[in-house]
Computed example of a mutant assay.
Amino acid sequence: MTAAAELVGADVDPEAGRSDAQIIASSLHEPEDFAAVYGRHARTVHRYAYRRVGPEHAEDVVAETFVAAFRRRATYDLARPDARAWLLGIATREISQLRRAEATRYRAMARVGTARPEDNLADRATTDVAARAAGGALGTALAGLRPGDRDVLLLWAWGDLSYEEIATTLEIKKGTVRSRLHRARRLVRAALPGGLWDVEEDGR
């Protein structure tokens, strides 16, 4: 188990009655309150970072994400009760500083030809066995995407964000999200064997 996972291993939320927005607001006066936001979302951020840059960098991304979030908490939109999309957006910007490490991870996937089931983008459209067999093609496809297209695709697939959340997170128009996602999915679908990604966008 990773250090980040251990820190949030006990699924007990002492702030269960308050939204993330309420906790962030109170943390402006009581900074220690922000720890509850970490407790709720560190695992999600770690999983997202792990998939994109691997174990060598994932924990650094988590640490930098929450440091940056703490520093920027006064700018958080308190109309958004759930901070998950905001945090994943910060993580995405941190990952953008690690493009070389991310590309290396995808090239490694391409060489090995397999990946653990939870690390497979294709698992939305097929069984784990088939997805694992597609790992090589998937790594090549992801490495070949434009960075902006890859960010949108992975926030959608691995971050489980809606189009609107991605648009807000990346500060782009919702139509841009749609076009980038469509282009990225078309390229990934074409690269995977046997039409492993023949699913329609779900309109999130």
Rank of each mutant, 00 (worst) to 15 (best):
T2M: 08
A3V: 15
A4M: 12
E6Y: 11
A16Q: 11
R18Q: 14
S19Y: 06
A21Q: 03
I24E: 06
S26F: 12
S26H: 13
E30S: 13
E30P: 06
F34L: 04
V37D: 06
G39H: 05
A42G: 01
R43M: 10
T44M: 12
V45A: 01
Y48L: 04
H57A: 11
A58N: 01
A58F: 00
E64A: 15
A68E: 15
T75F: 12
Y76A: 09
L78W: 05
G89F: 02
I90R: 09
I95K: 03
S96L: 08
R99M: 07
R99H: 04
A101R: 08
E102P: 07
R107I: 06
R107N: 11
A108M: 12
A108L: 13
M109T: 06
M109V: 03
R111C: 04
L121W: 10
T126C: 10
T127F: 00
V129Q: 13
A137W: 09
T140I: 10
G144M: 07
G144R: 08
R146H: 15
V152C: 00
V152E: 05
L155I: 03
S162N: 04
T169C: 10
R186C: 05
L187Y: 09
L187T: 14
A190V: 03
L192H: 01
P193F: 00
G194C: 00
W197F: 13
D198L: 07
V199A: 07
E200K: 04
G203Q: 02
R204V: 12
